[in-house]
Nucleic acid binder design. Structure first.
Lengths: 210, 210
DNA sequence: TCAGTTAGACCAACCGGTTAGTTTTTCCTC
DNA sequence: GAGGAAAAACTAACCGGTTGGTCTAACTGA
């Protein structure tokens, strides 16, 4: 193996470790996660975790940082300047939904993180959310200026959208298991895109449109 | 001490234990919570937890049950038969907000509970939520029949309301600490009632009203 | 030679849970 | 109401399994 291949192999190992760690942390939370379990799922010896990444806390922070960092960027990328405010809002909402659909480990980790007051929440993550909210704020402002939206608190809108999406994602297993709930609720798809994302979009738009 | 005083003293001890347990579970989650810490905060010997309540799991289930159980009842109680659908909806929303304001340990516990797929969620808790949703479902149905609401998925509505409230509650410490976010977001009150509850109410009603 | 890797033994600290024994309260009896 | 047994409440110390983390010795492929 030449140097490049070697580095690649090593990068691959680190990635496997982080992916496994993300999974286990998502399932069990920080204290509930077992380092041995992470090593097992990554298919590496436990010593490799400490060799490549560091201790349990380092592992966790790395996971949180890498997962949440991506989200904001993706949303910003797709919004084109010439779109109408309503179209921009749709893109914001759909990209956000897609991000959650694509990263199933994100909602549980975020939720637990928030539940513990976000003490270990990397600054990058907080900034990511702040950027999304300020992006949304710009969209709503533009809508107000153009006379298509009524003035509303952007933070509140994001809270409703994000809250609904995250809670929806995360209640999927409970809904499936629960017996005494209506069949139509039980059968709701676990994905946001193509199912409830559209309904949320319609409801929120009806609420903010003039 | 006569019998009444003793029973009261014992009840008091159990209450102190449960209150301390709720606190610690809210801060650290089930696996993160330390039984010794709960005992310390309750000001009792650790063995007393086992003597009065049971093991860690029993402690936890008792906490979750007592907290979530109340919520559904309270909402049901306050909705009078003669109210209009819109008024009923307002009561549902305000009572829910008030419950979260009054029980600050509830949002973090619920979030962590959901984050772990509700594996340890006592049946009573799931039933509580189901009851709230079916209550809301009845309100919305009635509204549709009377021609004041358009048909919407009640589960979705609850998800948006509950999601927004819970996430709002739980992001309070992060909002306070974050530096690069707008001042008006940072200064938003931690309470729901009297602050964002009214805005959420207005937005959702605008979305579902004919 | 050397970074990356493995198997696996090992350890100290932690933590849930128990136990043996003590104090306090209740309750019965004379 | 004195006495004393029984029950309830409580404590300090301990136990044993778990778990994060370390270490050694050996192997691999470039």
């Amino acid at each position: 193996m030449d140097e490049a291949t070697l580095r690649e192999k090593s990068v691959d190992t680190v990635e496997r470790i982080l992916r496994a760690a993300a999974e286990v942390f998502a399932e069990a939370g920080f204290t509930g996660a077992r380092v041995d379990e992470i090593a097992r799922r990554a298919g590496v010896n436990k010593a490799m975790l400490y060799y490549h990444v560091g201790d349990k806390r380092d592992l966790y922070e790395e996971v949180v940082r890498s997962i949440i960092g991506k989200s904001a960027e993706r949303i910003e990328e797709e919004i084109r300047q010439e779109d109408s405010p309503e179209e921009k809002f749709r893109i914001y909402l759909r990209r956000f939904a897609a991000t959650l659909d694509e990263n199933p480990v994100m909602p549980p980790i975020m939720m637990r993180e928030l539940a513990s007051g976000g003490q270990t929440l990397p600054r990058a993550a907080v900034e990511g959310v702040a950027r999304v909210v300020s992006l949304l704020s710009g969209i709503l402002d533009e809508g107000v200026r153009k006379g298509v939206f009524r003035p509303v608190n952007p933070f509140l809108v994001h809270m409703m959208v994000a809250g609904a999406f995250i809670v929806y994602k995360v209640t999927a297993p409970v809904r499936e298991r629960a017996e005494n709930i209506p069949e139509e609720v039980r059968r709701m798809a676990p994905e946001l895109a193509g199912s409830i994302a559209g309904d949320v979009e319609a409801m929120v738009l009806r609420a903010i449109r003039i």
